[in-house]
Design a binder for these strands. Structure first.
Lengths: 229, 229, 229, 229
DNA sequence: CATGAATGAGATTTCATTCAT
DNA sequence: AATGAATGAAATCTCATTCAT
C-alpha cells in the first residue's frame, strides 16, 4: 500500500490531503489531454495551489502519474475482495468479483483508460510497480475461477485465458465507453457479458447452480447485493 | 485509403516511398518510447533522411502518428475481409474473421498497443478518423455475428457486447502480450478464446454445426487454413 | 569587527551563538559545494535549525557568505599581529608574521580558498568590505618589510611586490594544497619559501643578522616559538 | 588539445567559429558576474545568437565554462614553450618562461581569475582535465628550474616550492590586478618579481651568468625579445 | 523566537518547425 | 528535393524568501 513517492513535507495528514488534491486534478487533466500535454502548472492551477507546491509532495512529474495510476490499481485491490468477502459460494464469489471489477472501473473510467495509455510513460521500475499490482488483482479472479473449477462448476479450460477475458470485460467498459455509453447501461453490460462468458464455461452442474442462485435472488426482495451463500 | 495528410512533394511514387520509410521508423520508435519521447530527429535518423525532409511529406509531427495508426487500422480492414472471402458458411466466416483479426494484431502488436496508447494524442478530427475505421472493422465482425444468428447458429444476445468481446480477444493478445507470451502460443490463445466464447453463444444447432466443421477439417490433410465451406 | 549584517533578533548573545552555528555549517558547505550549489536549507539542516530561522539572523543568503568571509579575514587581522607582538627585532617580526599568516591559512584552508572563489559573488559593497580588510592585513606585512628596510636588513626594492609575494606564499598553501599536501609539511613549506624569498631580498647585513637569529634559536631549547629578541 | 565537449553540428569550421563566439561572450560575462549569475540567454545575447543555438555546440552550461577555462590553460601550454624555443641557455629559458607566463596571464587576466574562482564549479572529471593541463604547464617551469640547477646556476632547493612561487608570480598579476594596476606596469612587475626570486636562488656562478646576460642584452639594440643564447 | 509549508520568479534544456543554401 | 543549422516557445524543476502558526 505504501508508495516510494517521497515528500519533503513531514506531516502525513497534510501529505495525504495535498496529494489527494493533486491526484484529483491530475487524473482529470491527464485523461482529457494526456500526460505530456498536461503541465505541472495546469495541475497546480486546477488543484488550487502553486506550481512549486507540487514539488513538495512529489519528486518529478512522473511521480504524479504514478500516484494517479496507483490510486486505480489500489481501488481494484481494495474493492474486489470486499465485494466477495461475504460470500462463500464459489460461483457467486466469481460473479461478485467481476461485477465489482466493472463497478470500480466505472467509478474510475478515466483513470482506467489512462492506465492503458500511460503506463508506458513511466520509468521501468514504476511501471513494474503498477503491473505487479495489476497482476495481483488478476490473481483474485484467477483464484475464483480455480475454485469454481474444483467445485465442478466450470469445465477444465485455460485459466489464464478466461481470467483475461473477464478482466477485459471490466476494462472494456472503460476502454470502449465512447461506444457503449449510448447503447447500454452498466448493469446490462455486466449481465450480458457474464451471460456470454459463463454460458461458455459452466458445466451442466454449473448451469443448474447458476439457475438456483438466480431463483434465490428473485425470491428475495433484497436483490443480489445483499444475498448470502 | 485516402488520408488528409498532405505533402509538398508532387510525385506520388516518391511520396509513397518516403512516407513508408518514415512510418516504418516511426512505428518502431513510437512503440518503444511513445509519441512524445520520440523526436522528429530520431525518426529521420532511423529512416536515413534529414529532419527537414520529414516536413516535405507531413505537415506536423502528429501527422506521422496519424500515418502510423492508419496503417494498422487499414491492415485490419484489408486482412479480415480477405480471410473471410472464400468462405460462405456463416460460422466459419465468423471464426475466420476472429482468427484473422488475431493474426493481424500479432503482426502489428506494437502498433496495436500504440493505437490504445496514442489515439488520444491526436487532434479530435484525426482521432475521429481512426475511430471510424475501427468501427468499420467492428462492423465486419458484428455482421458475421448477425449472419450466424439469422442462421440459428448463435442465440439471441446483445450483438454489441459479443462484438466487443471478440474484438477484445484480438486486441488482448497485443495488450497483454507481456503476460501471455510466456504462457501460450497465438494458436492456443485463439482456440481457447473461441472455445470459451462460442460455447457460450452457440445454439444447440450451432454446437452441432461447429462439431461438423471440426470433423471436416480433421478429415482433410489440408488443415483449417485451406478448407472450404 | 562590526558588520553591517543586521539581525531581527535583539539578544546579542543569541545572535552571536546562532550566527556561529550558521557560519560553521556554511563554511563547510560552501567549501565543498560552492556558494550557489549550497542552499539555505542545506545550511539550516547542517546547523540543526530551520530554514526560516536563518532569516532571523541574516537578511539574504549573500549575508551568510559575507559572514563566512569576514571570519577568515578577521582571523588574519587578529592572529598575525598577535604572533608579532612579543618581538621587536624587525626581521624576526617579519618572519613571525609570514609564519603566522601561513598557519592561519592552514587553519582556515577551506575558507581561504573560498575567499578566492567567492568574493566576487558578493555585491560590490560587501566585496569592498572584504578587500579592505585584506588590504589591512597586507599593510601589516608591508610595514614589517619597510621596518626591515629602514634597519638596513632588506635591500631597496618594490615593497608592494614583495608584500604580495609573501602573501601569496601564505595563500598558496591553501590554493595549491591539492598539490602540496602529498609532498611537503607546512613547516617545510614555510622554511623553504622564506629561504628563497629572504635570500633574495636581504642585504649582506640582513643575511648576517638572520644567521644570528638562527644560531640563537638553535642554542635555546625553547625553539623559535618562544624566543625573544 | 581535443576536448570531449561534443557538438551536434558536424561542420568543424562552423563549430570552431560558433564556439569562439560563445567563449568570447562567456568569458566576459563569467568574469563580470560569475558562472552562476550568468545565464545562457545572457551569453547567447552577447554572442548575437539564440539561446537554443548554444546547445547545438555544447551539451550543458558547464561545458561552456570548460571551454572557457580550456582556452586559458591551453594558451599557457602553447605560449610558454614558444617563448622558450629559440633559447638554449638554461637561465635564459627559465626567465623567458616566467616572462611569457606573465604575458599570457595578462592577455587572459579575466579568464585566469575565473580559473581560480570557478574550477570547482566543474564536475570532477572536467575539473581534473583542467588541473592536469595546469600541472603540465607547471612541469615546464619545473624542468627549466632543474636544468638551471644541473648547470650549477641555481642552488639546491625544493623545486616544487620554487615552481609554485614562480607560478604564483604569474597568476598573482591577474589575481591582484585590482591592487597592482594603479602602481606598476606589467614589465616592472616581471622585473621586480624575478629580481627578488632569482636573487634568492641563484648560486654565485648563476649571479655572474645573469649579469652577463643582462650586459649582452644591453649591448644589443635588439632588446631581450630577440636575443640568442 | 522558531518552524516549515507555501510561493513564484527564473534558469536550464528540449525540440517542433522554418528556411537559406 | 534535400539538408541541417537556427530559432524561440514552452516545460520542468529549484530555491530564496515570506508568513501564518
Amino acid at each position: 500500500m505504501k508508495t516510494d513517492v517521497t515528500s519533503i513535507v513531514e506531516d502525513p495528514d497534510l501529505v495525504e490531503k495535498r496529494r489527494h488534491q493533486i491526484v484529483v486534478a491530475a487524473t482529470q487533466l491527464f485523461s482529457e489531454q494526456g500526460f505530456y500535454k498536461t503541465t505541472i502548472k495546469d495541475i497546480a492551477k486546477k488543484a488550487g495551489v502553486s506550481a512549486g507546491l507540487v514539488y513538495l509532495y512529489v519528486r518529478e512529474k512522473e511521480d504524479v502519474l504514478l500516484l494517479v495510476l496507483l490510486q486505480v490499481v489500489e481501488a481494484y485491490a481494495r474493492e474486489i475482495p470486499k465485494a466477495m468477502e461475504n460470500f462463500t459460494d464459489p460461483l457467486e464469489r466469481l460473479m461478485r468479483a467481476v461485477e465489482a471489477y466493472c463497478r470500480v472501473v466505472d467509478g474510475h473510467r478515466a483513470a482506467t483508460v489512462l492506465a492503458y495509455r500511460s503506463t508506458k510513460s513511466l520509468s521501468p521500475d514504476r511501471r513494474e510497480l503498477i503491473q505487479q499490482r495489476e497482476t495481483e488483482t488478476n490473481d483474485i479472479i484467477a483464484n475464483a475461477i480455480v475454485a469454481c473449477m474444483k467445485a465442478g462448476l466450470i469445465r477444465k479450460l485455460n485459466v489464464d485465458v478466461l481470467t483475461y477475458q473477464l478482466v477485459l470485460v471490466a476494462h472494456g467498459w472503460a476502454l470502449k465507453s465512447w461506444y457503449f455509453k449510448s447503447r447500454l447501461t452498466l448493469e446490462e453490460y455486466i449481465v450480458d457479458s457474464l451471460d456470454i462468458l459463463l454460458a461458455g464455461v459452466l458445466t451442466p452442474v454449473g448451469q443448474l447452480h447458476r439457475a438456483e442462485l438466480r431463483d434465490r435472488d428473485a425470491r428475495n426482495d433484497l436483490g443480489p447485493r445483499n444475498s448470502r451463500a
